[in-house]
Amino acid sequence: MLSPGYEEIVKAPKALLHDHLDGGLRPATVIELAAEVGHELPATDATRLGQWFIEAADSGSLERYLETFAHTVAVMQTESALHRVAYECALDLAADGVVYAEVRFAPEQHLDRDLTLHRVVGAVLAGFREGCAAAADAGTPIRIGTLLTAMRHQARSMEIAELAVLHRDEGVVGFDIAGAEAGYPPTRHLDAFEYLQRENFHFTIHAGEAFGLPSIWQAIQWCGADRLGHGVRIVDDISGNGQLGRLAAYVRDKRIPLELCPSSNVQTGAAASIAEHPIGLLRDLRFRVTVNTDNRLMSGTSMSREMALLVEAFGYGWSELQWFTVNAMKSAFIPFDERLVLINEVIKPAYSKLLA
């Protein structure tokens, strides 16, 4: 059987759990929105600007990588801009064959022009609703769940957690913390995580990307994370012969999903290359591995491109791509019966034809 080609992968249904709204803007949109608010950009040609984001993020440092967001966040400070970015996000993901996505953003980063947290969330949710409707009309249906993110170096996590729960029936399906890991352990936000657990609400935590096993251990054992945002450094607890340490064994035994982002992990120095990415080992050892984009603009990527890179690096076929997709759908923060519908009525029938 021939390896899956990129164009074929685009048409196959995919599920995405780790995608940042402010990391997925179209370069042309950044330019137009920057002109509206008078924000200076490093380039004003869409192609050149897109390349600048990739090159600036390709430093091997998470801190340097995060600096690129100053430009995207700066142009997302009005309701109309937030609505547009969310709308276009839905269309772009749907056009790439994504049938389910969880897109996250930090409401506290969009208050520079006097918006309230509630208006920020409302604008994004409205953009997603209209974008999903337009995608369905175009014959590429997609469902999007929203995660509200708190910045780990700030002190608003409880406020954002309460905001997420307040909007849980309007499209917000989970909570997250993000930002530089070193020096800002997840336990600083323990009150927010305890509140979310009392409210029976789902949350993931960025952990095990730039910082190692202690970050993962705290996210799981202290904070109770449902999933690990990245979690790639769990490989540090696996010996050369595949022997699992106690933390790695716990993560695998409990089927805690790993939101791996291959291209992004290479950019931030969490992996040396796609071919050397721990996703190959973690998949072989049957961890709950999922494939994600992280920041499509900064990585110049898409779900189809991430899948195609793995096909090239590891020789994967349709069965592995289906496995990654079903893993993601099993790990989604929407109700169980709704996950099953997408798995059994959308994903598996499509891959059955590809595997035939």
Rank of each mutant, 00 (worst) to 15 (best):
H83L: 05
A94Y: 09
V120W: 09
G97T: 10
V85T: 13
A101L: 10
Q109S: 11
V121S: 00
H83S: 00
H118S: 13
V99T: 15
V85C: 11
T116K: 06
C89I: 06
E102P: 01
F105V: 06
L93H: 15
P107N: 11
D114V: 00
Q109H: 14
C89K: 05
D92V: 01
A94Q: 09
A86I: 10
F105H: 03
Q109A: 09
E102S: 04
A101Y: 10
L115S: 07
L82R: 08
A106V: 03
A94E: 13
A101M: 12
A86K: 04
L91K: 10
L93T: 08
V121C: 02
F105T: 03
R104E: 03
Y87F: 15
A106C: 07
R113F: 12
A95P: 00
L93C: 13
L117S: 07
V103R: 03
E102K: 00
V103G: 03
A94K: 11
R84Q: 14
L111H: 01
L117N: 06
D96M: 09
R119E: 15
P107K: 07
A94M: 13
H83Q: 01
R84D: 05
R119K: 15
A94L: 09
A86W: 05
D96F: 12
G97S: 09
D92A: 14
D92K: 05
R104Y: 04
Y87W: 13
V99Q: 10
F105W: 09
A86L: 11
V120R: 04
R84T: 13
A94C: 11
L115E: 12
C89Y: 10
R113S: 11
A106Y: 05
H110M: 09
Q109F: 13
A90C: 10
R84G: 00
Y100T: 08
R119I: 03
A95R: 14
L82S: 07
Q109L: 15
A86S: 11
V99F: 10
A95I: 01
R113G: 08
E88W: 04
V120G: 06
Y87G: 00
A101Q: 10
L111R: 00
H118W: 01
Y100M: 08
P107V: 10
F105S: 02
L93R: 15
L117P: 04
L111G: 05
D92S: 13
V98W: 10
V120P: 06
R119G: 12
R104P: 01
R84S: 03
E108A: 11
T116F: 02
E108Q: 06
H118M: 02
H83V: 00
A101I: 14
V85D: 02
R84L: 15
H110W: 12
E102V: 03
